[in-house]
Amino acid sequence: MQKITPYLWFDGKAEEATAHYVSIFKNARVVDVARMGPDGPVITVTFELDGQRFVALNGGPQFAFTEAVSLYIGCADQAEVDELWERLSEGGEKGQCGWLKDRFGLSWQVVPHVLGELMSDPDPRKAGAVGQAMMTMTKIDIQGLQDAYDTVA
Rank of each mutant, 00 (worst) to 15 (best):
M36G: 06
M36Y: 11
G37E: 14
G37P: 14
P38W: 01
D39V: 08
G40H: 12
V42L: 03
V42F: 02
I43C: 09
T44P: 00
T44E: 00
V45D: 02
V45I: 12
T46D: 11
T46L: 06
T46P: 00
E48Y: 07
G51I: 05
G51K: 09
Q52R: 10
R53F: 04
R53Q: 15
R53G: 03
R53V: 15
V55D: 01
A56N: 12
A56P: 04
L57C: 10
N58H: 09
N58P: 10
G59P: 11
G59Q: 14
G59D: 13
G59T: 05
P61A: 15
Q62T: 14
F63S: 05
F63K: 12
A64C: 03
A64V: 13
F65P: 04
F65K: 04
F65D: 04
T66I: 12
V69D: 02
L71T: 11
Y72V: 11
C75G: 02
A76I: 14
A76C: 07
A76H: 13
A79Y: 09
E80F: 12
V81L: 12
V81E: 02
E83R: 15
L84K: 13
W85I: 06
W85K: 10
W85Y: 13
E86A: 06
L88N: 00
S89D: 00
S89L: 00
E90G: 01
G92S: 07
K94N: 02
C97Y: 12
W99A: 00
W99Y: 14
D102Y: 07
L106I: 15
S107K: 01
S107L: 07
S107V: 10
S107I: 08
Q109I: 08
Q109W: 07
V110R: 04
V110F: 06
V110M: 09
H113L: 02
V114T: 15
V114M: 12
L115E: 04
G116W: 12
E117H: 10
S120P: 02
S120H: 04
K126Q: 01
K126W: 08
G128N: 08
A129H: 11
G131E: 01
A133R: 13
